[in-house]
Design a protein around this nucleic acid. Structure first.
Length: 285
DNA sequence: CGCCTTTGACCGGCGC
DNA sequence: GCGCCGGTCAAAGGCG
């Protein structure tokens, strides 16, 4: 039994603005067939993306094992940008883990906002540390730097804890925004702009350098905060956080996102719109 | 009373 | 060797 993506269906129905209200049964059946095919295409695309990510993750893991045979294992650091209220001075990032603050320091590079130091207190021997500091450029953005890996699960059991799904939770103060995420062997970068849109850009030397846009406004009621258009832009993000080491998290991201109904809806809508959009220079009707 | 935050002191690395 | 700076420690105080 094939289930239909309601978002894609709605988009397709809205696109067909010239359709008469009374249509022949044959036309409806043709539309139904077309939708079924597109639904299958969406499923295939999603499955292909998941498989591709898993394969890349496996490759990265193998490469890391090779590297670790030659060099000492470097401590893993991951950096996230989290949008919050600029008036909120607590420097608290809700990421699904429990943290104990053990220090705060004013740093030279950003003297206007102190850097807070946290240790994971969810597990007694968890080695993970976290540094949180406001972005120098945009005060509404917190730069959270994680060091080490948790030896336990988050509170809600998700790979990234509440951090990953903040847009679908009741608390909308901490909306995750990504830096341009660099997939080392892939060259793909992903950003979320001010309108809650994920931009996934393939590398310029790719055979199909077509950016994919996912409109996250479909997934909930994320507030559109005024941020002068700088917080989520690649230019600004890179100035706050040069690189993200997300190698071992790709599989977690994919697994988590593909289970998220809101994400799959947004993904389906974006892919559907790109499929159904008439190619430039062609006349479809 | 226990946990957490605050904050000044202390330590170690690094550059000059 | 000295000073700067980032990171950590630990005592004190607040809060539920």
């Amino acid at each position: 039994m094939i289930s239909y993506c309601p978002v894609a269906l709605e988009i397709l129905m809205n696109m067909d603005a010239h359709t008469p209200t009374k249509r022949k049964v044959d036309d409806l059946q043709q539309d139904l067939l077309r939708l079924r095919k597109e639904n299958e295409a969406l499923r295939f695309l999603l499955q292909a993306m998941t498989t591709k990510c898993n394969t890349l993750e496996q490759l990265i893991r193998e490469k890391n094992i090779e590297r670790h045979d030659q060099f000492p294992v470097a401590q893993k650091t991951t950096q996230f940008l989290v949008r919050t209220d600029s008036k909120d001075n607590t420097l608290i990032v809700k990421d699904g883990y429990q943290w104990r603050k053990y220090g705060q320091k004013v740093t030279k590079d950003n003297p206007s906002s102190p850097r807070a130091y946290f240790k994971c207190s969810l597990a007694p021997r968890c080695p993970v540390k976290k540094k949180v500091q406001r972005c120098m450029v945009d005060k509404s953005v917190l730069v959270a730097t994680y060091e080490g890996e948790h030896n336990h699960d988050a509170i809600n059991g998700s790979p990234l804890g509440q951090f990953c799904c903040s847009s679908s939770t009741a608390d909308h103060n901490n909306n995750i925004i990504f830096n341009p995420i660099n997939f080392p062997s892939h060259g793909i970068s992903a950003t979320i702009n001010n309108n809650d849109v994920i931009n996934i850009a393939s590398p310029s030397n790719s055979s199909r350098p077509v950016p994919i846009t996912l409109d996250l406004t479909l997934s909930g009621s994320m507030s559109n905060q005024e941020n002068n258009g700088s917080a989520g832009s690649p230019q600004n993000s890179s100035s706050c956080a040069p690189n993200i080491n997300c190698e071992s998290r790709i599989e977690d991201y994919v697994a988590y996102l593909t289970k998220d109904h809101n994400f799959t809806q947004a993904l389906a809508a974006a892919v559907a719109s790109s499929i159904t959009r008439p190619p430039a220079g062609t006349e479809n009707q």
